[in-house]
């Protein structure tokens, strides 16, 4: 279909001029990225759906009031709205986001073997716990970059757009996050192997 190759900027323009189908294409194109970003922070499907919905309500209102300034950055703009809503959610609940193994979405699922015995299962659990604690100890800015890069597979460009810092700063934070992790691991002689 011809519309599937239209750029985001053109689709936004079409939507603003009243073509509702353009929004359908934009949502279809970016829903997985945005939803997975929200879910990775919230870890709850229903809440993630609510935040996804609120994100697009804000998008729709901004576009319909014609106050969106298109600079070819539709997705980073929507991701920033989603990010802010996630922060609002945690502020409201006075809870800091933490990665939990809900079964449906396990950030440490890579550690599981196909048929682990009890011993390796226990070791795996311990390693997961140690790693989570270590990451939690990192300064918030470093933790944020590390989570986005490693667990959400985002590029440094995307991280930079989303967090509002330069690519070099994001790279620096990642470097310090790894250095800090390594330092703590060496200092406490933690063995992170299974």
């Amino acid at each position: 279909m011809a519309t599937s190759v239209l750029s985001d900027a053109i689709l936004v323009k079409k939507y603003v001029s009243g073509e509702e189908s353009a929004l359908t294409i934009l949502i279809e194109r970016h829903q997985a990225r945005i939803y997975n970003f929200i879910y990775s922070k919230i870890q709850d499907r229903d809440l993630s759906d609510d935040i996804f919905q609120d994100t697009f309500i804000k998008v729709i209102k901004t576009l319909k009031t014609k106050s969106y300034n298109e600079e070819g950055k539709f997705l980073p703009w929507v991701m920033r709205i989603a990010h802010n809503l996630v922060v609002d959610h945690f502020r409201k609940n006075k809870k800091m986001p933490m990665q939990r193994d809900s079964g449906e979405y396990s950030v440490f699922s890579f550690l599981f073997e196909s048929s682990p015995n009890i011993e390796s299962q226990m070791i795996t659990e311990q390693v997961e716990l140690d790693l989570t604690r270590l990451i939690d100890e990192l300064p918030e800015d470093q933790k944020e970059v590390l989570m986005m890069r490693i667990y959400q597979d985002m590029s440094f460009k995307e991280i930079s757009d989303l967090t509002g810092v330069s690519i070099n700063t994001a790279l620096g934070r990642m470097r310090y996050a790894l250095m800090n992790l390594r330092k703590v691991i060496e200092k406490n002689q933690i063995i992170l192997t299974n």
Binding site: L23, Y35, N36, S40, F52, F56, F108, Y151, D153
Partner: peptide, 17 residues
């Protein structure tokens, strides 16, 4: 490692549209 794609519910999309 954690990129199993999930999508929002159809009802959510339908509500937004």
């Amino acid at each position: 490692l954690a990129t199993s794609k999930m999508l929002p519910k159809k009802e959510t999309i339908s509500f937004i549209l």
